[in-house]
Amino acid sequence: MKRYDYLIVGCGLFGAVVAYELSRNGKVCIAIDKRNHVGGNVYTECVNDIIVHKYGAHIFHTNNEHVWDYVNSFAEFNRYTNSPLANYKGKLYNLPFNMNTFYQMWGVTTPKEARMKIESQKTEATMNTPQNLEEQAISLVGKDIYKTLIKGYTEKQWGKKAVELPAFIIRRLPVRFTFDNNYFDDRYQGIPIGGYTPIIEKMLQKSDIVLDTDYFSDKKFWNSLADTVIYTGEIDRYFDYCYGVLGYRSLHFKTSILKNQSNFQGNAVVNYTDADTPYTRIIEHKHFEFGQQADTVITKEYPIAFQTGIDPYYPINDDKNNMLYKRYLQLAQQQENVYFGGRLAEYKYYNMDQVIECALKITQNYLSFN
């Protein structure tokens, strides 16, 4: 095989941006991925004329105008606004927590009434400094909303009792005293018409691509093909778990085509917040692009325990895992001609705009000395 300037391990959003920037600056790149498609978790596919987000809902949102302009150079984005609903035992509530939610919960109609209700429930809890997620949530929204819309959902998602989870997980919980159902505060928001896969394909079109191939099946061989390696996979796996396995939560997706049913739930995303429902949410994909097809496609998301060999999704950034990551980071910084970037390599939950921003920065640094 020919010689390359860069080997990029992972054809997700981070790897694709890096490949595009390097290629357009004259570098010769090869990208490899263990999956049989490009795109990583933002991969979308067409099912019955409906664009399906195979690995969960991905709504692009950002306040970074440069990143917004950048991603719009690859595709046209629609005006989709994320306004999810919560279903608790058959009753619906608006998200994020706002005046609509408070009216549905308590019948209050003014911000003053809502604040008084929350404050009364916080006072009843008589807590000073929240020590865990449960205490933190109650200190923000009171007992009723916590028990109805947070507790069951969160415990399913993380596989632990709320009192066993750190407070920081929910510290930035959005609470609004306006009738605004827009989940994100970001200035720019939307979904690419036709899905994310065409964007990734455009980014990778000047790179050689090898799919359905595990980098670790012959790491020495793949490294020999290029002068420099950009690694976007799990950082602990790169070092053969020498210090131990980093903790994640994972997901199982169950997708169904509903024939001759044009509208299943009337919204793209509905969260199921009770403890008894095994899945955390149902996605109805056609609503991301305002579809009018005769059929519909839905996906149920089931949180599952992570183990080596399945895809990791959410890093468990508690003190134990963060300390373990720092040890791997020290090893990574000692590598010659190997650079680590992206959600898995940095053991950090990134939004898509943050992935692009980091990829652009890291590539600019490479280009400055290569």
Results as ranks from 00 to 15, higher is better:
5 D>A: 13
15 G>H: 06
23 S>T: 08
23 S>G: 06
24 R>N: 10
27 K>W: 02
32 I>K: 00
33 D>R: 05
37 H>Q: 07
44 T>L: 07
53 H>G: 08
54 K>Y: 13
64 N>S: 14
65 E>L: 06
69 D>M: 08
70 Y>C: 02
75 A>G: 04
78 N>S: 06
87 N>A: 01
99 M>E: 00
105 M>F: 05
106 W>M: 03
118 I>P: 02
124 E>D: 03
126 T>G: 00
129 T>E: 13
130 P>H: 10
131 Q>H: 13
138 I>G: 11
139 S>Y: 11
140 L>A: 15
140 L>W: 05
142 G>L: 09
148 T>Y: 04
148 T>I: 06
150 I>H: 10
151 K>V: 10
170 I>K: 01
171 R>D: 04
175 V>A: 05
181 N>D: 14
191 I>M: 14
193 I>P: 01
194 G>F: 05
210 V>H: 09
211 L>F: 13
212 D>L: 14
213 T>R: 15
214 D>Q: 08
215 Y>R: 03
215 Y>C: 05
219 K>Y: 10
228 T>S: 01
230 I>F: 13
234 E>A: 13
237 R>I: 06
237 R>P: 00
242 C>Y: 03
244 G>M: 07
245 V>E: 14
247 G>N: 10
248 Y>R: 05
252 H>M: 11
255 T>A: 11
257 I>W: 10
261 Q>H: 11
262 S>L: 02
288 F>A: 00
297 V>Q: 02
300 K>L: 06
311 D>R: 13
312 P>C: 12
317 N>V: 12
347 Y>R: 01
349 Y>F: 11
352 M>Y: 12
354 Q>C: 04
360 L>H: 07
361 K>I: 05
